[in-house]
């Protein structure tokens, strides 16, 4: 297959749109969370100010190569995930680099950032970072398990590893969505989704304003800004993956925005309603509720 150079600016455009959407969406979600607590909440452009501030800090210190690479890996994970999933189905412009078999790669990217982060934060040498990593890795592993099961169930169901093909099958209407054709897999994946969005009740790893802030304890200035950029891109990329696999994908930008927002809101609604789990509680929760669902979905396909 000849490589189409036009894909690069298109991919950058996708990235740009998704990044800004992610920044605004994150602030909006924060605002919704604040309103639930009867606060006014942050201004909608707060994340931009934070980002520019962090890029604009004059000094930064490093703890070594891996420390430096941690945020880079993380951002790569987010961007890679986004680019290898067809963002808008059927659009030549925004299908990006998707190809047959990309599902496996996407799964890999979901985990890639976390691992890079673990190595980087480990090198920062701060005890709180190390604690954060152990917590984070164990929780993410437990949370990803049902998702991986669900993905294999879906792949078995459609007999393909290409996300584009999976989306294509779901285009026949609501009832052809995986949500209806394989509800067990979707249920397992959505439970895992709650866990990987770093929102309550599963956000103890990254409790942003408490002493054990977790892996990013030592990160500051541009390092932190890179990670913030990733926090705008990664959730969206992840939701795109979910959307494509389970909710029929999106054929145009408005549908895309709407669906992403709706899927994000699932985790927000759960988050504002439930208090936080401790790590061992959440692992148990995933293993008891989500993993059996995933196994069942594979068996039933």
């Amino acid at each position: 297959m000849p490589f189409d150079w036009m894909k690069i600016p298109y991919a950058l455009l996708t990235l740009f749109i998704v990044f800004n959407f992610g920044m605004l969406l994150n602030a909006l979600i924060q605002k919704i969370g604040a309103r639930v607590g009867r606060r006014y909440g942050v201004p909608i452009w707060q994340n931009y100010a934070d980002l520019i501030k962090n890029y604009g800090l004059r000094s930064s210190i490093t703890h070594g190569v891996m420390y430096y690479l941690g945020p880079v890996f993380r951002l790569t994970g987010g961007v890679g995930l986004l680019l290898f999933v067809p963002t808008i189905y059927g659009s030549e412009m925004f299908s990006n680099l998707s190809f047959a078999g990309d599902l496996i790669l996407a799964l890999y990217f979901v985990f890639f950032g976390t691992l890079g982060m673990a190595l980087g934060a480990g090198e920062s040498g701060h005890p709180n970072a190390a604690i954060g990593i152990t917590r984070g890795l164990s929780q993410v592993t437990a949370a990803e398990l049902p998702f991986a099961l669900a993905v294999f169930s879906v792949a078995l169901q459609y007999q393909t590893f290409s996300i584009t093909d999976i989306v294509a099958v779901q285009q026949a209407g609501f009832t052809s969505w995986t949500l209806f054709t394989n509800p067990l897999a979707v249920a397992a994946a959505m439970l895992s989704f709650l866990g990987s969005m770093m929102r309550p009740p599963f956000d103890v790893v990254l409790a942003p304003q408490e002493i054990p802030i977790g892996p990013p304890t030592e990160y500051h200035s541009s390092y932190l800004a890179l990670m913030q950029t990733n926090r705008a891109i990664f959730p969206i990329a992840k939701i795109v993956l979910y959307m494509s696999l389970f909710f029929g994908g999106a054929a145009s930008w408005p549908v895309f925005f709407l669906k992403v927002f709706a899927i994000y809101m699932v985790s927000v609604l759960v988050g504002v309603a439930f208090p936080r789990f401790r790590v061992e509680q959440s692992i148990r929760w995933f293993l008891i509720w989500a993993v059996p669902l995933g196994v069942l979905s594979i068996v039933l396909v």
């Binding site: 909440g41 942050v42 201004p43 304003q209 054990p212 802030i213 990013p216 304890t217 030592e218 500051h220």
Partner: peptide, 14 residues
């Protein structure tokens, strides 16, 4: 205070 862009951070680095 969040509406004024004020947040609390647990680590001096940030």
């Amino acid at each position: 205070a969040y509406r004024f862009g004020i947040q609390w951070r647990p680590t001096p680095r940030q």
